[in-house]
Computed example of a mutant assay.
Amino acid sequence: MLDGYTMDVLEQRIGYCFHNKALLKQALTHSSYTNEQKINKTENYERIEFLGDAVLELVSSDFLFREHPDVPEGELTKMRASMVCEPSLAFCARDLELGQFMLLGKGEENTGGRRRDSITSDGMEAMIGAIYLDGGMQPAKAFIDRFILSDLEDKRLFYDSKSNLQELIQGKLKKEFEYRLLEESGPEHDKTFVVEIDMEGECLGRGQGRTKKAAEQQAAYEALLLLRDRGYVFKKY
């Protein structure tokens, strides 16, 4: 239930207090909830998400344009795409534990919707849109700067973890590695996978996720952190 106390907790977490609480509630309302409750479908987050996506694109584009004055347009476009794609925004949403605040229908709730990347990433864009509508560009930009454009070095390492790891191990270390599925548990609609990375007998990292791909990405990220501690340098934008 999204009551006044719960909204207060979220506002403290994001560092912004809404003048219009209805906007915050709408930003957290999934279409499965409005369908189930027979509420007007315009009261879910989809329209606000549409606006938030545009605000995020503008702010992230301005950030990259100013931070990388010598990078050509094509590369800037690739950089922006990796920063605001679904897995990236879901990664940021997990830091806020945004999924736990969202209003979902029972079916979506029972199939693990609170942890689904497609829902939590949409929630991040809807939150941006709601803040923009409530307070304008300045607080929306502050939210993006704090929760999406911060700690970019580690986030980029996570976003590109599998490709970076393959390039490093096979290209620089000249070694072979593989992802090994260690565990698969839970009901069909809400499974948990545990994966480790083996490099010629050495475990470099272990990851857990709702899909094998997510578990592999987490394992690759852990492996990259380990290799970075050993002095290896990865490509940077």
Rank of each mutant, 00 (worst) to 15 (best):
P72A: 06
K175I: 04
E97N: 14
K78V: 08
F91I: 06
Q170Y: 07
E216H: 03
H68Y: 13
D154K: 13
Q208M: 14
L96N: 07
A126F: 03
C203V: 15
Q100D: 11
T211C: 05
N164W: 09
C203S: 14
D70P: 06
I119C: 01
F193N: 05
D134L: 00
D190E: 13
D198Q: 08
H189S: 07
N164Y: 12
L89R: 08
S150N: 11
L182G: 06
A126R: 00
P139Y: 02
G205Q: 06
E196P: 09
D190G: 11
F147E: 03
I169Y: 00
E216T: 06
Q100V: 10
M124D: 07
Q208S: 14
P139K: 05
L76N: 02
A142S: 10
K175F: 05
S118E: 15
L104G: 07
T77Y: 12
R146M: 06
M83A: 14
Y132V: 03
M83I: 15
G123C: 08
R180I: 13
F177N: 01
G123D: 08
D117Q: 14
I169R: 03
Q166K: 14
K191M: 06
E196A: 15
L149F: 03
V71W: 08
E200K: 03
R115D: 11
T77L: 12
L98W: 01
F147C: 00
Q100A: 11
E178K: 15
E196I: 11
R115E: 10
E167P: 07
R180E: 11
G209A: 04
I144L: 05
E178P: 08
M83L: 15
D154C: 12
F147G: 02
D117F: 11
Y159D: 10
D154S: 14
G105M: 04
I131H: 00
R210V: 10
G209P: 03
R156P: 07
